[in-house]
Every structure is written in C-alpha cells, then in structure tokens.
Design a protein around this nucleic acid. Structure first.
Lengths: 343, 343
DNA sequence: CTGAAAGCGCTTACAG
DNA sequence: CTGAAAGCGCTTACAG
C-alpha cells in the first residue's frame, strides 16, 4: 500500500465499531472476549499487518527491552566478538542492542552514555575508553538506577558486576609456556603500563620467571605504547643488539609479536630455534604469519555472552530484590603454534 | 541516591508548584516564560539531573532517532567496518544505532527486521543473509513506509537506495593487474556462484582476459563455496597437477588466496616467481602472510558511511517529498604486494 | 506569563 | 462480554 501510517489499535477498533480496549484484549487472547470478536480483530490485524508499537508499550511499562553497549572500537577482532556474544544472548531474550563506539575518546563516551540513558535502555554494558579518567557520566547511570555491567576495561570505583580477562594468568601462562619449551632468557614487550591490564600481564610474567627459576632483567622489558606491528619491530631491534640477547620474547599483544617476529627474522636469527615468540591474542592473525605465532587466547565472545547474562540476571530480578554483584574473571588459554617449538 | 525513578517534568512541576506545561516550556527556553521561572526550573533540573525521556518524545513525534542495522555477521573485518562507518555518521547526526546480526539465517533476519520495526526505528539498513530467498519481511518495511537502504548484499526486487562494491570492476582489476605483471595463464578461484557478487567478479575476470588477449579456460576456474583457507588449499592442488598449469591465481576472497599461497608453496613452486597470487580483501590479513598478498580492497567503512548518508537524506526530506533513490557503486583498488611482483 | 486539555499508542482496574 | 477512564512522559494549540 505504501501507506506511511502504521496501523494502530484505534484504527482496528474504528473499523470494527468496538472500543480500543476490546481490541487490545482480543489481541492478547484475553478470556473475557468472545470468540467472534477475537476472530474479527485478529483477521483485521493480519490484513493490515498490525505491529504493536513498542514505543507505546515502553512508555507504559517503563521498559524498553533494549540494552546499550558502549565499546571503544567496533572494528577490532576482540571487541567485535564481544558485541557478537552480547547480541546473540540479547536476541534469545528478545532484547534489542544499541551499540555505540567511543573511538577511545572520553567525550564521545560521555555523550554516548547520555544518549543511551535518554533512550531509556534497560541496562548498559560498558568498556571504558583508554582516555577515560573521570566517571561522572557513569555515576549518572547507577544513580538513576539503570543496571550497568563492565566488560574488559572496568573501573573499580563502582559496585557493579564485571567480566574481565585474567591478564595476570595470561602473562603467567605465556611465560610458563616459553620456560617449559626450554627458553631461558625471556624478554617482554609490555603493553601501555598505565593500563591495569598491561601491568597484570607484566606481573604474571615476573611471577612465572620466579617460579621457573629464571632471571628477571629490567633491560629485557620494553613498553610498547601503541601495540602496532611497526612498534613491535622497532622496539625488538635493540633487544637483539644486546650483548646478552634474549632467547624468547613474550609480547603483550599480537601485532607487537608479529613485529618482533619480523625483526628477528630480518636480523638473520631463526624463530623458533634461536628465539621463541609468543603473543597475546587481540586478532585472529596469529595463525597466518610464518612461523605461525603461539599466543594467549582471549575469549571475546564468551565475555560478551557472560556480560549479557549478568545483565539479564539483574533485569529479571524481582523489583526491589537485591542482585548480588559478580566479578567474573575469564581464563585465558595457551595456543601453541610453531613460533615456540624450540626443539 | 540510588533512586530508581528518573526525574520527570511532573516531579519538577510539583516541587515548584507550577504546571508541567510551564516546566516543559522553561526547559526549552520558550520566550513566553519569565526569567525567574526559567531559573528555578533549570536549577532543579540540574540538581536532579533531569533527562528528557526520549521514549515519550518518540511516542509524540513518531520519531525514535534510531536506525536499525541488519548485518550477516558482526565478527567480520568487512562488516565491522561497515557498522563502524554507520555508527560514526549516526553519532554525528544524534541518532542511535540498533545492530542485529542474522548469522546468515533467513529466519533470524525476519525476526530481527520485525523486532526493529516494532521498535519503530526511523530507518533500516540491510545486508541480506546468504540464505535469504524470500522478501516478505522486507516488503513489510517498505509497505509500512519505513525508509530502507541495502548495503553490500541487496535484492533488486525493491525500489530502494543501495551501496555495493563494484565486483565486476574488482574482478577486472585483479586480472588486469596480473596480466600487466606479465602473467599469462590466469586461474580463478571463484566465490559461491549463486551470489551475484561472485558472478560479477567472475565476469570481470573473463572480460579482462579478453581485453589482454589471454585465453579463457573453463578448467582454470574453480568454485570455492565456503571461502576458507582450507578450501583454497584443497581446490588449488588440482590446478597445480594440470599438465598445462596456470602461472597465476586470482582468488575471489582472501582466505582462499591464502590457501592457494600455501598449496603453491607446499608443491615446491615459488610465489611470485612461478605463480602469482591475488586475493579479494575480506580481512586485514593479506599483509601478514609470506609473501605478502596482493589484493583488491573493499571500502567497508566508506560503504557504511555512504549508506548512512543515503538514509539520513531520506529521513531529513520534507514530509511527502519524494526522495530519489540512489544506487551507489563503490570502486575497488588494487593493493599491490609481493605475491604478484613477478620480476 | 501560565495553565488545562488533548493526544501520541497502548493497557488495565473499574464499572456495568 | 464490553467500554470509559486514567495514565506512562512529554508537547503544544488554545484560552485566559
């Protein structure tokens, strides 16, 4: 028909000469309504493809059946997995998902949270931008009574549920894996050390060295602020120039590890025979380089699904019932490939 | 406060002993309202962090300031770029974005479209699932008067705007690039040939062969239905067993190209000296393999931004004004890397 | 300068 | 079995 007006209950009522209340009841198969009326209503509803207006329902029920997601980047293997996990669970629950990316900017994070709040999302799933230093915008969320769950990048200033990766364990596992393969002098390309996540990986690295009786040397640790392939390449070169050079590199992210791989190969040394390399899985890239890169897996999809589940637990709780906060820490796994197969 | 009730205009009115109408006017700086009232209202609004309820506004204005996106997969380099492009433009326009993934299932596509329609999104951006054969669910969108724009995977049954990649040109460019590098016997790992997109790339390949005076041989063309690395590997092997084997391969997607690369290397032949390889960029992976893979770039971000712009053009049109449909075809580019540098 | 009324599309307690 | 009324949170034409 190309009619730009969606059919309402009133339209049906008018055509049938009955009241909107009756139409509403008939539509939801209310026991009071007569068979005949129900039939007439549902026939007409079908004929005009009547769709209940969710906006009107939301206004009445103060529930939008929508959750908001605030994420640093959409174009990112890990985060797109998280979003996908959230969306799948939300779909099963009959919820819609509004997605906002902050592009790592605090200002955009603030505006997005504000927009989502204005849209009265039932709950908010948030991963902080790298830039975010103050939390007033998130205070408004919790103060207003909207359930919030952090994923991956959280602030400890809030008493809300969260899902994060066990970065300490990941750093430990990576280093342990290298040690078990027989590498003795393990260097670390750390992530930006202002992030808790980088510090945890670094700490796990140190603990594993200790547990396996290996030396911790400050000059074997180099910070990679951007986590790019180029940076990994450049920062690895000085390590190779050391008189006593490392025989393995644990990079806190995969692009840096790939850069390290290149730098080692360019210097004429062999991976994994001379130097082993292991990364930390931000992308799905690791398997493609040569040699294929060992890495620590981060369960992105699971993180999203878990965060969504925590959210729905809060949303489905009885009104007034206190839901206990959970802080879930997901385990990482070692993905062992060629780049660490020393023998 | 932890008060789970968001402050409304009525609350402010009550506290100030004035009417909701006056509060509403004061809030939007209506000229009729006195300075004093305005000040009192805005002070209280600030104190209670009043947020206008977008749901109530939507019900009145029949505009939600939200657009819906239906995409086959979120975890996908190309599509996540598209979503990102859409989100950035929507953010600039003050719109929210609801994202649904179909996981390539028609049923889920139908339900998602339906849910988005029920939520009264102002417009819908759709990329069809591979499975979608019938279009009743999309007819409901256009019949109901909701603007729709297709991106990447479209149906020609609708008179709506669309943004797609010039696959014909991409196929042509890939083949032309190989020809110009001096390759003469160019094979093609085609995509699933039920998709228009695959057929177009194939047609571009054929035309380029003709234009460059090269033979078209049916046995040089192999269909890769899944587009995985494994499939590319397996389907390339028979090509290498031919008595008169090709000296170049154009794969309709990057994973298949990467599989081809491996198969060629495993057979003892050299890339690019013996056989050149070029892919079609679905992922960002191409630069990491060895040798680095030449590829045809698909501007995903631009596609999303363009599709969003078309949508907003329709949404911003005067009521009743006819917006002319545009079918935008984005150009691809050759990304020339090692895998095709014959000399 | 301010307020009462109506309405966006729905539901439901109340009345008959 | 059905309907009128009230209300979700807002805006705005109308009245004063």
């Amino acid at each position: 028909m190309g009619n730009s007006h969606q059919v309402t209950i009133k339209d049906i009522a008018r055509e049938l000469n009955i009241s909107p209340s009756t139409v509403s009841r008939a539509l939801k198969d209310h026991p009071d309504i007569s068979k005949d009326t129900k039939k007439a209503v549902s026939d007409l509803a079908k004929k005009y493809n009547y769709q209940p207006n969710a906006i009107a329902l939301s206004l009445r029920s103060r529930k939008t059946n929508t959750i908001g997601v605030v994420v640093p980047q959409i174009v990112h293997f890990f985060f797109s997995n998280v979003i996908s996990g959230i969306e799948d669970i939300a779909y099963d629950k009959g919820y819609n998902v509004m997605v906002c990316q902050t592009n790592e900017l605090q200002e955009r994070e603030e505006k997005s949270v504000q927009a989502l709040l204005a849209s009265r999302v039932d709950g908010l799933l948030v991963s902080l931008s790298k830039e975010t230093k103050t939390y007033d915008h998130l205070r408004k969320v919790t103060d207003g009574g909207t359930p919030m769950v952090f994923f991956d990048r959280k602030s400890d200033d809030f008493d809300v549920s969260s899902v994060v990766i066990d970065d300490y364990q990941g750093g430990y596992q990576a280093t342990e894996h290298l040690a078990k393969q027989g590498y003795k002098k393990i260097a670390h390309l750390a992530g930006p050390l202002n992030l808790t996540l980088s510090k945890s990986r670094y700490a796990g690295y140190q603990q594993a060295l200790k547990d396996y009786g290996l030396d911790y040397r400050r000059d074997y640790v180099i910070e990679c602020a951007n986590g790019t392939i180029e940076e990994g390449y450049e920062k690895t070169k000085p390590l190779l120039d050391l008189r006593d050079k490392p025989d393995a590199v644990f990079a806190a992210n995969d692009p840096a590890a790939i850069g390290a791989l290149k730098a080692i190969k360019d210097s004429g040394l062999k991976v994994p025979q001379d130097i082993g390399v292991i990364g930390f899985s931000d992308w799905q890239l690791a398997s493609l380089v040569e040699p294929a890169l060992s890495s620590i897996s981060q369960p992105g999809y699971e993180m999203g699904a878990e965060a969504a589940r925590l959210m729905f637990k809060a949303l489905e709780a009885e009104k007034g019932e206190e839901v206990e906060k959970e802080n879930i820490v997901l385990k990482t796994n070692v993905i062992s490939r060629e780049s660490t197969h020393k023998k």
